[in-house]
Amino acid sequence: MIELKNIDKYIESRFQRIFILKGVNLSIQEGEFITLMGPSGAGKSTLLNILGLLDEDYAGEYFFGERNILNMKEKERSNLHKSEFGYIFQAYHLIDELTVYENIETPLLYRNVSSAERKSIIAELLDRFKMVAKKDLFPAQLSGGQQQLVGIARAIAGRPRVLLADEPTGNLHSGQAKEIMEVFKELHAEGTTIIQATHARENADYGTRLINLVDGRIESDERI
């Protein structure tokens, strides 16, 4: 499904190039649940951003399906981005001014989903994550775990095939973290491709494949 070929990402400084990613080759099949691990600064987030089309400033080739991303037009890339990817952040990144309901609704608005359809999708998600009673609350009124659930609901509202999660449990205590990971497992079982970056080894056990990154290189890549 996704094919990265010889990806380099670097920053030009005055005397040398500092590589964040170097010679990364990666092939991801539909339905995999991949965990990226590695120390801080290993390039986990950068790799996620490149996979999620948020960062286009790199060398190498990126194929999504049969198509080379770099050869796509801006509009096509943007459509691909909208239709295929969902994002979950360590700091939840909900919009403070919007209610739970409206946060989940936002990506649907940008996808021009009709009003009736939006309502049914959001109702289903609220029900699934048991947040119906909280739909009119603002993010600040929720606990961290609840906020991240909203974050996940928002990420999957658009029915993406690929879910990208950057340290999704980094700000949560273990009980909440476990709950989130169970949700991931469920989503994976339903067929969603998931790629998560994490520091916590125990999270990797929910996945099917573990990739270790060190200094911008893939050090190991194993099936679990």
Partner: peptide, 12 residues
Amino acid sequence: KEVGLRKVMGAD
């Protein structure tokens, strides 16, 4: 932050 988020969520 708001702008970034909205873009990530697909706003053009």
